[in-house]
Every structure is written in structure tokens, then in C-alpha cells.
Design a protein around this nucleic acid. Sequence first.
DNA 1: GAATAAATTGTTTTT
DNA 2: CAATTTATTC
Length: 718
Amino acid sequence: MLDRDALLRDLNPPQREAVTAGDGPLLVLAGAGSGKTRVIAHRIAWLLGVRGVDPRHVLAVTFTNKAAGEMARRVADLLLPAGVRAPLIATFHAACVRILRQHIKHIGYPPHFTIYDEDDRLALVKEGMRELDLADRTWTPASLVHRISAAKNQMLTVEEVERAARGPREEKIAALFRRYQERLAAAAAVDFDDLLLLTVRLFDEAPAVLAWYRGLWTHVLVDEYQDTNRAQYRIIRQLTGEHRNVCVVGDPDQSVYRWRGADIRNILDFETDFPGTCVIRLEQNYRSTRRILAIAAAVIAHNLARKDKTLWTENAEGEPAAVYRAWDEHEEANFVAQTVLAARAAGRPWDEIAVFYRTNAQSRVLEDALRRGGIPYVIVGSVRFYERREIRDALAWLRLIVNPADDVAFRRAVQAPGRGIGRATLVRLDEVATREGRGLLSLAAAPPADVTGKPGRALEDFAALVATLAARREGTTLPAFIDEVLNASGYREDLKQERSAEAEARLENLEELIAAAEDHARTEGGATLEGFLDGIALVSDVDEWKDDARGITLMTLHSAKGLEFPLVFLTGLEEGVFPHARSMGSVDDVEEERRLCYVGITRAKERLWMSYALHRRIHGYGLGEPSRFLLEMPEEHLTLLGAAGRADAREAAPVAAPAATGDDDLPLKVGARVRHGRWGEGLVVGVERSGDDVLVTVRFASVGRKQLSLQYAQLEEL
DNA sequence: GAATAAATTGTTTTT
DNA sequence: CAATTTATTC
């Protein structure tokens, strides 16, 4: 047994309550920096070490593998003295893979299914577009992938999408969706969305399997609940609907994955979904200074669709945040580099510093400046290891060996290295494959009549080689096998022949892949090729980031969620960049961007620098107006650096900002009738100036009195 | 069929 | 503007 007092000693009262709450649904609304991870870890330790729950009966779900690893480490630290084993802590996707690998046969899939990632998906959609003559200018492949994914995230079946299709455009999309699913099935492959959907289906259609898991996991904990989607919600319900021992932790203000299907209603409606829920709020922040928190609060307060919540802290007031207006992105990057060097000179280690940006593309200029300044850095994301060409080529071979039906892998492997099989041959092969409903590899073993001569023989040789390798798999270790595949395929030799620096780097990366397999074999004990490939399919950017990095960290705001740094830079705070141009169309989109901004600000413990550029080269548009988020921050907590005066900022912003002089030119008068996109028509009952903004009080027929900030609310005068 | 040159075209965020 | 797709040449 664990010492319960020791476990609770360093927790504040609400944290303690969350850790010790008994069975039944538990919702922990945990503000940024309120010790959320700590609470989950301690609760798990409480369940196992004090309440005596068997570790096998607990499932904890996190958002990234890194978070899972971190959680496992903390739980192990707490439980080690009591000699208790840690429970299963995994991402939703990883847990689903585990379940599906074991039971997917109940819904008619083979257990050795392949997981298709974003690239494979794109390849599939492109093939489908060609097939269905969708290759005109109307859609981009990426947008169609997105639409298919959106449909799946809403848990719509192909039939439902077909039925709901109105007009030729939607019918074409539905047809593509059908083709996409058919191709997936033919390749014995599933995509990311399927991992969740098929688990739901499995539980629906195989009640015995569900019953088994219900009995197995009697206690379920879910982190980052605000970012769960419909399917994940269903899985939680399926697993816990009966015993209702479900503890979810999250913060609606940090929900930033709506575009990926996350449904904020999951957390907002949790209390009604699980009647009798015990709700605990963690509102004391242990991370940031008071000023940083005040800035974050002011920004997030501009979201209308939001339950009000106030974070407080006992931390020091801290320094004001700095805002830097740069002439262009290069000057912005130099500013970051110079400030980083100054911090370093003041004794701050590199790993206390992080630079965030909205899009990966922004990292380039920053990298250049850092390199010039001799500043070591680590980038999370951008070109991921497992997305490099040579790695994907090698993985294609491995995937094909595991799953001979994997056509996407076939296309890749058969041309890596080139072996005289080109487009024409593949088109012919594909025609027959589609007609006869067969896989490309099985056709290659006995090529159709119209593929003769050299290409025909090359296909046969290729198929034979894959078969030989597949047979050799059992006899050797995983790393040795990968090594053998690289040699037997001729891929390594091909690169060696090139004798360029680039080829040299690629060869090194292949060695790194083998090293990764060695790692995997070591940590997982009896490592299988399948397990290795699963792991790779599910790694995220942040997973690869090591926090003992000997450099400053560069990453997107999305990757930054869940992390914290003493010194933080938020760059590219311009309209069109952040909020992103593609997210400025609707109020909901902008509110999600604002939450992302909130996430960024609240990563900072001590110091925060924010910057924007007046000129930025993003193909075409890009005259930098300062981000609306900057204008939402309280001036008293900001220091303006360089020539970047607040007045200048405002001048550069042709936002419908009310003129600063005179009281008569208020844009609305009491008694005016207005329309709001969300609440409909209303009557203006009050108008007052508040700092730089104008607050309008409106009486709506639908929801009564509301005070709106004119600058951000979409009000139309009638 | 493959290598090279020219044209085009797309760009958020990611498990 | 860089990366990918398509046209051209060998």
C-alpha cells in the first residue's frame, strides 16, 4: 500500500478532491498550468496504491505518445515505492490498434491490416480522382482528403453521404468516398479515422468483445478531453456506460482540434451525458506570472461561445510582455535571435527557450537567423524523420512484406530503386487489378498478357523477391531483417552509386531506421515487424522531441500544447497568419484560433515576447496588419519595442476600429436595431467606450441582454 | 522507360 | 517560390 498522506501532501484542496473522488463520472476542468498532469498521475496512483485496484483494470488515454510516456513515468515514480505496476497508458489511436489487432476479424478485416497515413491517403485520393475524372480545377486532393475525413469524423457511412448528396458536386465527392473506401478495403488498409470508427463498430457488432473490455477496464481516465471527437466519445461511452467509472480532464479554452473533428460539446455536455457527474475545477495556475495570465485572460475573454472561468495565481507579477513590430519576417527572425542571445548572455540555458509559430513554413526564416547567430535549435515537426523519402521507401518494402495487398506500398517499393517499371506498366497493371479486384503484387507475380518483355520480367522478379524476403522474415531479428531488405532490394546499393552528399545523408538515415528498430527490439522485448510499423504509423512530432535538447525549441502552436517553457516567443502575429487566413471565415474558426493564441501565451512561465511583421512574403497577399489578438491584450502589461508603437499598430490596422476622438461619432446609437449572426435581431440599449473598443449592450429577442465588443462581434445595423 | 526541362499549382494546424 | 506534375528529349 502507498502512503496516502505522502500522495496528497503537495496538492491543493481541489486537486486533492480530484485525486480522491470515488467511483462514478468525474469531470475535472483544469485551466492552463493548474497541475492537470499531476492530478491524473496522482489519481492513478491513488486508485492503484490506495484503493487497491489492479493495474490491469485501469486504462488511461492521452493525446500524444509523449504525453503517455510522461504520464507513465510520473505514475511509476509514485508507485515504485509500493511495488505496484503501472497500468496501460496510451493514445486513443494506439489503444484502438491494440484492440483491433486482436479482434478485428469479427468485422471482417484481416488482423495484419496496414495503417495508412496522411501521405498514403493522399495517394489513394489522387488515384480515385484520376479514375473518376475529378482532376479538374474544382478540388484539390488535399481538400478532398479533408472532406472524406470530415465525413468519417461525423461517423457518416458511404451510403449516408451518398444519400445526403445534393447536386453533381456532392455526388462526385460521395462517389470518390466510395472508391476511397473500396481501395482501402482492397489493400487491407485502414486510415487514422478508421482506427477509431472500426473500434466503435467492433464494440457494436461484437458484444462479447465489448463485454470483455468493459470487464477489463473498470476505470478509465481521459486526458485532453476537450479535443476528443465523436468516435472517441462513443468509445468512452461504450467502455464506461455501464460502470461509469470515467474520469475526464480537460480545458474547453484549449480546444484546438476542431478541424480534425474534435467536438467541444463532448466536454461541455459531459455533465448531462453522465448524470451525477462530480465536477471539479482547477483554477489556480502554478506556471505563469500574473501578467502573462492577465494577457491570456484578456484574449480568451473575447470568445463569446465560452463558459467564463478565471485563473488565478500566487506567482509573482513578472515582467510585461514585449511586442515587437518588425519591418519584415527577416527582421522579426533577427529580433528573436538577438533576444535569445541576450537571454543566453544573462545566463539562461538554451532549453528554457521556445519559439512558436502558426504554420511550419514560418520556421525557415527563423532557422536561418538562428544559424547565423550560432544558436543551437531543435525543430519539432516540419520534415519528420519518418516522412523522409528514403525512410518511406524502406517502409514501403516492409509494409508490402507484411501485407501483400498494400497497393500504395507496392507502387512505392516497385520503383525504389527503379527497375524498369514505369508509368505505362503500372497503368496497365492497375486496370487489370481494378477489373479483377486483385492486388498489384499478386498480379505482378504473373503479369497480364499485355505486359511483356523487360517490364514483365521485372515485375515477376520483384514479386519473387518480395516473397523470398517475406519467407526469410521469421529466421532473423528485426534490425537484421531490415538490413537484409535494404540490400536485397538494391536500394542501398543504388544510393551508394550516387556518391552525392545527399545520398550520403539518406544512407545515414537508413542506418538510423535500423537503429530505431534495434531500440524497438530492446524496449518491446519480442519485437515484431508489425509492432514496429504500428509504432511508426502512430508517432507524432512531439513524440520525437526530447526535452533535454541542447538547443532552443521551435514548434507550431499546436505542438506546443501541453508543454511549458520559461521564455516564450510568439511570432507572426498578423492577420492572415495568425489568425490564419483560412480560419477567418467564420466566428467559430476565429474563436478556435483565439484559443490557440491562449494556449501559446499560457505556455510561458516567466517571459513572453510577441512579434509581427509589416511585410511577409507568403505568395501573393501579405501586408501585415497586427493580429487582432494583439489588440485584445491589455496595454498595461505590454512593452512596445523598437519603433512599434501601439498607435502605429492601430494605424496599420484598417480594422473597423472606432475613431478615438469625439463621443458623437459612436458607430451605433441607443435605440438602433441590429442583427447578430448568432443571436438574431436585437435592440441597442447602451453604447459606451471602453479603452480602444466600443461596448454595445443589446437586448436580443432570443437570449436577452448581451454586452458585445463592437470590434469583434459581427453586428449588422438594420 | 528514364532523365531532364518546363510548367503549374498549391499552402494550417496532425493523431 | 518551392515542390510537384507534365512535356520533351534521349
